[in-house]
Design a protein around this nucleic acid. Sequence first.
RNA 1: GGGCGGAUGCCAGAGCGGCCAAAUGGGGUGGGCUGUAAACCCACUGGAGAAAUCCUUCGCAGGUUCGAAUCCUGCUCCGCCCA
Length: 421
Amino acid sequence: MSTTNTANLYDVLAERGFVSQATDEKIRERFVRPVTAYIGFDPTADSLHVGNLVPVMALAHLQRCGHKPIAVVGGGTGLVGDPSGKTESRKMLTREDIDHNVRCIGKQIEHFVTFDAPGKNSPTGAVMLNNADWLTELSWVELLRDYGTHFSVNRMLTMDSVKSRLDAESGLTFLEFNYMVMQAVDFLHLYKTHKCTVQMGGQDQWGNIVMGIELGRRIAGAELAGLTFPLVTKSDGGKFGKSESGNVWLDPKRTSPYEFYQFWRNTPDVDVKRYLGFFTFLPIDEVNKLGALQGQEANAAKQMLAYEVTKLVHGQAEADTARDSVQKAFGAAQDVTGEAIPHGDLSEAELGAGIGVIQLLVTAGLAKSNGEAKRLVSAGGVRLHDQPVKDISQQVTADDIRDGYVLIRAGKKRLFRFDVR
RNA sequence: GGGCGGAUGCCAGAGCGGCCAAAUGGGGUGGGCUGUAAACCCACUGGAGAAAUCCUUCGCAGGUUCGAAUCCUGCUCCGCCCA
């Protein structure tokens, strides 16, 4: 079902804001003919988060433009940990953890690209590889003899990722120093086995990508190319992809579709256009049109953004419910009965005796501790069915049941419904 | 192997015997203003408790002291310099 179109991949990526750096100006010409390109993903968790979405979308664009995408999950490199962009060493993961993570991440990527059936190798079918398959086979001596002479330590020391770590207090271990070597070997391996000639990645991967290109040229005489994506930032300087409850994950068990939708719905005005380009497949004209909306109207663009991204990640059905629930809950109707609204059960017996609001806030997950719940109430941020809660010792009783549920709100955007059984 | 310096809350970073649950900034949360935006202003930001107060926290383990994040000893990890 590859919707192959005639657009040049480079143009598509460029107009959507995906291009930060490319190895040469002529990179566009490479995409006139079908190429095979790869992007690596680190298996540091068993789910991707929204921060990983840029490279995932890039893979999808790759396929849509008639190229063959390879997703490399770093089972081997994950054992080492990438020093790029980190101020200190990453925790080392066990092999079992990594294998588990690799499988989970693979499944998530499947939502964005169409994979080749096992054994098949179609021109645009995506392939998922685990670099542990070849990296762990390499012996130390073999590695040094075959590749060691092609890496200049002088050169490696000039790489930003290395330099920053040398300056940093935490320093850089030999293990991490080798990360870029592994990634370079990956690129060479993919060139040899899959005719892969392009590597893409985040801005912080530039150095690693360049190492691979050089290795390919020296060992195989290959003309490889690389392209990096800009770091996604929030205009206010905050970290992208974080919400009150931490990372925003693709896994619905970690971040519900409702929360996921809300995350995008709350995008600052100035970032909407950029995000539409990155995280949706809406035609660029549409992106520009929505992105140009000003003032109150920008909300329409945010709704579209939230809906489209949720649809991509969780499917149309979930996106529909999330959108409808949110609209009802925040619209004039104030209808919070939908299944997508965060909710839980409460027995009538429990209510009969009366439950403290504080406890209710904690069980609802709106506050992490009693103290936090109290602070919320004292700050005037809690409402019970739209009635402000003023007293931290207030009891919730059967009298508070409306239409079979008790609704508690924390702030303007967070709410939780207790269905009374 | 030797010398020196360091390890503090989500992060960065002060404190260097009691006034320290620990300055300040960032982040986060709540309130105000709004449009479920930004900017701005205000408040809060270890846990339990209605509160008094109690408990746990300043790399780890001991010690000195009425009293330690602060002093001493050992250990672990890290940086810098010398070999």
